[in-house]
């Protein structure tokens, strides 16, 4: 039976995202909230908000670490596939997609027809993830949304050799004790993360253009530094935080 539309739900480690699409792929509803402790309640609340669409028989596709928790899901996909679908729908080109999420970062190589060529993820620690920046922002007493702007105020960066959240902290303390400018330290932290992502990109081969999705792409310093490191312009999805949820919804049409 043909469906009227589709609902994509992406439950990540940091944020909970949902997108409702009609058959013309137009976004009828979207939502981004921090992932709470009671994910089941968040799912119930979402379904109350979008009850109109569920009654109309929309497909429900879930993705992200919490995808199994959406009992109503008609199908479940990984974020890799969902990001790929979401980005390809928007840009219609072969590309290298970088998604820096809260708990992991992914580099996805997309083929000319939107097919998955290869992907690589960091999976062992928080190096190169949004959580790294979040912790560092916390250390400096800055809100996560401001950290990128501050790091972009200057061009000089301190060398931070560790992207390990724990070890980087001791490096920072050492630099602060030497009276080093905090903006330079912040830029250095961004550069350390970007270099980690760059090595992931190189491990599967860079295929331009470079497109970013995920919450960290809202950070201007990451966008700029990543582009600079790869000698290219960094493109960003229109709704970077919603890319995977959007891609999931597309898979349900």
């Amino acid at each position: 039976m043909e469906k009227n539309g589709s609902i994509g739900i992406d439950i990540g480690s940091t944020t909970f995202k949902a997108v409702v699409l009609n058959r013309k792929k137009e976004i009828l509803f979207s939502k981004v909230v921090p992932t709470g402790i009671k994910i089941a309640d968040q799912i119930d609340n979402l379904f109350q908000e979008i009850s109109f669409y569920t009654k109309e028989g929309y497909n429900i596709i879930s993705t992200g670490y919490g995808k199994e928790m959406v009992r109503e899901a008609t199908n479940r996909y990984t974020e890799i596939t969902c990001h790929l679908k979401g980005i390809y729908e928007e840009f219609r080109t072969a590309s290298t997609i970088v998604d820096i999420g809260g708990q992991d970062s992914k580099v996805i190589k997309c083929g000319p027809d939107g097919e998955l060529i290869d992907f690589v993820m960091n999976d062992k620690c928080s190096a190169g993830t949004g959580r790294f920046l979040e912790n560092m922002a916390g250390r400096f007493g800055i809100h996560i949304s401001e950290i990128g702007g501050i790091a972009n105020r200057i061009s000089k960066a301190q060398n931070i050799s560790s992207t390990c959240t724990v070890f980087a902290e001791s490096e920072i303390i050492s630099l602060l004790s030497q009276g080093v400018n905090t903006d330079e330290i912040l830029r250095g932290l961004h550069l350390a993360l970007v270099r980690r992502i760059k090595s992931m990109i190189k491990s599967i081969g860079f295929n331009p253009p470079l497109i970013m999705s995920g919450g960290v792409s809202l950070n201007p310093a990451i966008r700029e530094l990543l582009g600079k490191e790869l000698g290219t312009e960094t493109l960003v999805s229109k709704n970077p935080q919603l890319t995977a949820a959007y891609g999931a919804a597309l898979l349900g049409l």
Binding site: Y65, Y77, F119, M121
Partner: peptide, 17 residues
């Protein structure tokens, strides 16, 4: 959970191929 996510993405890649 992390390893399984990568594994699932790999299966999705094979299925698409």
């Amino acid at each position: 959970n992390q390893a399984n996510m990568r594994l699932e993405a790999f299966i999705e890649e094979i299925k698409e191929r």
